[in-house]
């Protein structure tokens, strides 16, 4: 497989210069590097600019409802564990509308990879604050500037015991595609929060702004992502310096292992034509 095998003919509706392009490129590279075939990959999305991504790549796609990308993704993986299931979602879709599913699917720990296009703003609805918009940022709705405390996805994920917590940057596709490879390889729920400039509506968190602040934690050989306390401290860092890379890792059994489905044939392969329920009748006699 090479990059062209993942090329979709669907016309791309993103703004020129959008950070989403970098994520698309990184994802394709990762899938090629992992030797995945389009037919074995399922991309699941909700609504938002990020949610359009599955259309721009040759792979299976379930583009569902706003905020509801993770539940069908987890269930599709449970139904057919041979699929590589990836969620492409945004800060509004995943951390806002779908916050409940984000929390509980970290607990559920199905082997899926969740890539959050975090541009810190609402793009599709044209510029309102998202859960991760920096305080003080003025929008047409938050006219006096955002007064809500931002949601801290990496801190949240670590606190919930997510086994793979990473942050990428859409302009660094080499680094991001490596994170995606690691995320897909991780057995369990993998969160990759991606800083992604919105060139139309976010005038603060621009390529230049991010460019000055980002650094890679894994460049420091002393940084141990298995150290939960250190990881949490790293996740709290925001402002002058913004860490990228695998912030936190924990090896833990996945949902598939704990539920036993990883030791059985994929559910979708189960023959259902002649299920004999007569053995249950004794319980009702």
């Amino acid at each position: 497989m090479n990059i062209s095998d993942f090329k979709s003919n669907d016309e791309i509706a993103w703004c020129p210069g959008c950070g989403d392009f970098g994520i698309l490129t990184s994802l394709k590279k990762a899938l090629v590097a992992l030797g995945k075939k389009p037919k074995d990959v399922l991309l699941v999305s909700g609504i938002g600019q990020a949610a359009k991504l599955p259309h721009y790549i040759q792979s299976n796609c379930f583009n569902g409802l706003h905020g509801r990308a993770i539940p069908p993704a987890a269930a599709a993986k449970i139904a057919n564990r041979n699929l590589t299931v990836i969620v492409t979602t945004g800060d509004g879709d995943c951390y806002g509308e779908g916050g409940n599913h984000f929390m509980h699917n970290i607990r559920r720990n199905v082997d899926i990879t969740v890539i959050v296009h975090n541009n810190q703003i609402y793009g599709l609805t044209k510029g309102q604050a998202s859960p991760t918009t920096d305080p003080g940022y003025e929008t047409k709705v938050q006219t006096g500037g955002v007064i809500l405390e931002p949601l801290h996805p990496l801190e949240m994920a670590i606190a919930l015991g997510c086994g793979f917590v990473a942050r990428g940057y859409s302009a660094d596709t080499e680094h991001l595609s490596r994170l995606i490879i690691e995320g897909i390889t991780h057995k369990g729920f993998a969160l990759i929060d991606v800083l992604q400039p919105c060139v139309t509506f976010n005038k603060k968190n621009t390529y230049e702004w991010y460019g000055k602040r980002i650094y890679k934690v894994n460049d420091d050989p002393a940084y141990d992502p298995h150290d939960k306390t250190a990881a949490y401290q790293k996740a709290c860092e925001w402002g002058e310096r913004i860490p990228l890379g695998i912030i936190y890792r924990a090896d833990k059994p996945s949902y598939e292992d704990k539920s036993g489905i990883s030791r059985m044939p994929a559910l979708v392969e189960t023959e259902i034509n002649n299920i004999d329920i007569a053995p249950t009748f004794k319980d009702f006699r």
Partner: peptide
């Protein structure tokens, strides 16, 4: 939404 995801699969 989970039921639909499983069904799609």
């Amino acid at each position: 939404n989970m039921a639909l995801g499983a069904s799609f699969a």
